Computed example of a mutant assay.
Amino acid sequence: MIQDILNVLTPTNIAFLMKGLWLTLKLSFIIIILSTVIGTVLAVMRNSKNIILKWIASIYIEFVRNVPNLLWIFTIFLVFQLKSTQAGITAFTVFTSAALAEIIRGGLNAIDHGQTEAGQAQGFTQLQIMQYIVLPQALRKMLPAMISQFVTVIKDTSLLYSVIALQELFGASQILMGRNFETTAVFTLYVTIALIYFVINFGISSFSRFLSKRWDLARE
């Protein structure tokens, strides 16, 4: 059995999996950055006193969040005729930005309104109040939920192989499984990619808890 495992985890196969892992991480990084920026804009719009901006953000967030991400991937890939990488990034950004918008809005709403009034009393503009007073405090409150969403993005990129044939980590493992039909080989590959996903996501979650503890100690 050990020999069977070694026959699967050859340097060539490991290098192929690492190539898939690199694509997974690259896609996730781009999606997270874009979604955070767009989600922040949507959260501010939904909290806006401008009724038009508020309704635009509300309709977008509620509609997108209540449609499965898998359907967004299919729709954007087929309707807009994008390349697989572009379609994957776009679909995930559309979906994740809506989820993050609600997380960010919850964090913003958790900040006492007196903070905003204090900033206005000091002559700050609304942008300065948001940038220097509200967002830094809100980030501490919404970080755990945001990190959880980031972890979801990394895991859910595995959908992209089955839908649009992107050879990310899970896709790379499926290709290798197609070359190795033995039960031991399939089991080895599944365990390997499960461990890779676990190490990455557990590391991110642990870092989030570390930051939260540091911030809690800083407030004491």
Rank of each mutant, 00 (worst) to 15 (best):
Q3C: 00
D4F: 02
I5N: 07
I5G: 09
I5Q: 05
I5Y: 03
I5V: 15
L6Y: 10
L9K: 10
P11A: 09
M18P: 10
M18Q: 05
W22N: 14
W22E: 12
T24Q: 05
T24V: 09
L25Y: 05
K26P: 01
K26F: 08
L27E: 01
L27R: 02
I30F: 04
I31A: 02
I33V: 15
I33T: 04
L34P: 01
L34Q: 00
V37F: 11
G39L: 00
L42W: 00
A43L: 02
V44H: 04
V44Q: 01
V44F: 01
M45Q: 05
R46V: 11
R46P: 03
R46N: 12
R46T: 11
N47C: 09
N47Y: 02
K49I: 00
L53V: 00
K54Y: 00
K54A: 01
W55N: 13
W55M: 07
W55L: 06
I56D: 01
I59L: 13
I59T: 14
V64I: 15
V64G: 09
R65I: 04
W72G: 10
L78E: 10
L78H: 11
L78T: 14
V79H: 01
F80I: 08
S84W: 05
Q86Y: 06
Q86G: 06
Q86I: 09
A87R: 08
A87Y: 02
F92L: 11
F92V: 07
T93Q: 03
V94I: 14
A99Y: 12
A99M: 12
A101K: 10
E102R: 13
E102G: 10
I104N: 04
I104W: 04
L108Y: 08
N109F: 00
N109Y: 01
N109I: 06
I111W: 04
D112I: 08
D112G: 12
D112W: 04
G114F: 10
Q115A: 12
E117S: 08
E117P: 06
A118R: 08
G119I: 08
Q120T: 09
Q122K: 11
Q122Y: 11
T125S: 15
Q128F: 00
Y132S: 13
I133K: 06
L135W: 09
Q137K: 12
Q137Y: 03
Q137C: 09
A138M: 10
M142D: 06
A145K: 06
A145D: 12
A145T: 14
M146W: 15
Q149A: 14
Q149W: 00
F150I: 12
V153M: 01
K155F: 08
K155M: 08
K155W: 01
D156M: 02
T157A: 07
S158T: 10
L159P: 04
L160S: 04
L160D: 02
L160I: 08
V163M: 07
I164C: 06
L169P: 10
A172H: 05
A172V: 07
S173V: 09
I175H: 03
G178R: 11
G178I: 11
R179I: 07
F181P: 13
F181Y: 15
E182V: 00
A185Y: 08
V186Y: 03
L189M: 04
Y190E: 03
T192W: 01
I193F: 07
A194G: 15
F198H: 06
I200W: 04
I200Y: 03
N201R: 05
F202S: 14
F202N: 15
G203H: 10
S206Q: 13
F207Q: 05
F207E: 03
S212A: 12
S212T: 13
K213N: 11
K213P: 00
D216F: 00
D216A: 14
R219C: 03
